[in-house]
């Protein structure tokens, strides 16, 4: 995290939103300035303790004075959620990044929101925004069991907001696949298209679900997919091939072995690259590419940028035998 974008906040409240899900309210310091503004889809990097940083989507309302995140407890996860659940308590001060948004809600004729499990967190403020702007929306919220699905009450209240055009069908579908079976994503999206026509599809959930959603949208010209993925701990990534890196500013020539990340190699060479999530989710470690073709493996769409060309050093690799980086 770069210093100017770092903030100190205090844990102001914890609330139990569903089985295994705690929401954390982060307030500005008592004598500090208000927290920077954010837009739906934004996330924070939270420094839980030295060596343990995690990204969390903001799930509150941008008009609130506090930030709000929600965290599902994975006791056998890599330790971030376990730390939040076991050790974060009101009064604790935390260093966080300013909000960043790689998952912007773009103008659209209609929105089809799809959330898997705790993936509801960035989607909830998006639903509020769509509702406030009067843009037609639907939401499919899929989880394993209803009791573990956070914010269902809030969504129900939002959905029941008074209509100015007479009665209408509920727009949010809460689906517990543990009892109701597999959710029909195709049927759901096609129903949205029949009723609302063109749509931007905003999805957040496990990689497998987002891959399926992306494929569905690719086959339908009137749907544009925007997704944020999270992965299971220890999930496999495709094996890497070794490649060479020339750093144009420092003049360093480096080699990245098949089993190492570019980020680790750059850091070991003493180059100033920030790293945070190491999963291609946060974009903190982006580096500018001068020559060569990166093999983009990030989940924040860095591969879609044209100028400057950038890549996520933590997960992305090279399609060409070498790359030139502006470092």
């Amino acid at each position: 995290m770069s210093t100017p974008e770092e903030l100190e906040v205090v844990v102001a409240e914890l609330s139990w939103e569903a089985d295994g899900v705690v929401a954390v309210g982060l307030a500005p310091l008592p004598d500090g300035p208000p927290l920077p503004a954010w837009t739906p889809g934004a996330h924070l990097t939270v420094r839980l303790r030295p060596g343990l940083e995690r990204q969390y989507s903001l799930c509150g309302d941008p008009v609130d004075a506090r930030y709000r995140i929600a965290v599902r407890h994975c006791p056998r996860g890599r330790g971030g959620s376990d730390y939040v659940h076991r050790f974060l308590r009101p009064g604790r001060r935390l260093r966080i990044s300013a909000p960043r948004n790689h998952f912007d809600l773009l103008p659209a004729a209609s929105y089809a929101f799809v959330a898997g499990g705790i993936g509801i967190t960035p989607i909830l403020p998006m639903v509020r925004r769509a509702e406030a702007d009067g843009i037609p929306w639907t939401l499919a919220y899929v989880g394993r069991e209803r009791a573990t699905m956070a914010f269902v009450d809030r969504l129900t209240r939002l959905d029941a907001a008074e209509s100015t055009t007479g009665p209408r069908a509920p727009r949010s579908t809460v689906w517990a696949s543990g009892t109701a079976g597999r959710f029909d994503l195709t049927g759901h999206l096609d129903a949205h298209r029949r009723e609302h026509g063109r749509a931007r599809v905003y999805g957040c959930g496990p990689t497998s679900m987002m891959d399926a959603l992306e494929e569905l949208c690719a086959q339908r010209a009137d749907l544009v997919f925007h997704g944020e993925r999270f992965r299971a701990p220890g999930a496999d990534t495709a094996p890497g091939r070794p490649f060479d890196v020339r750093c144009t500013r420092s003049g360093l020539d480096l080699h990245v072995d098949a089993d190492r990340s570019l980020l680790d190699v750059l850091a070991a060479a003493g180059l100033p690259v920030a790293g945070s999530c190491r999963e291609g989710l946060c974009g903190t470690c982006e580096v500018v590419v001068r020559a060569g073709d990166p093999d983009h493996r990030d989940h924040v769409g860095l591969g879609d940028r044209t100028a400057p060309r950038v890549m996520a050093a933590c997960v992305s690799r090279a399609l060409t035998p070498g790359l030139e980086l502006e470092l």
């Binding site: 056998r76 890599r78 330790g79 220890g234």
Partner: peptide, 9 residues
């Protein structure tokens, strides 16, 4: 057990 012990990827 092992995935929870991941460090540096």
């Amino acid at each position: 057990l092992l995935p929870m012990l991941e460090a540096r990827g």
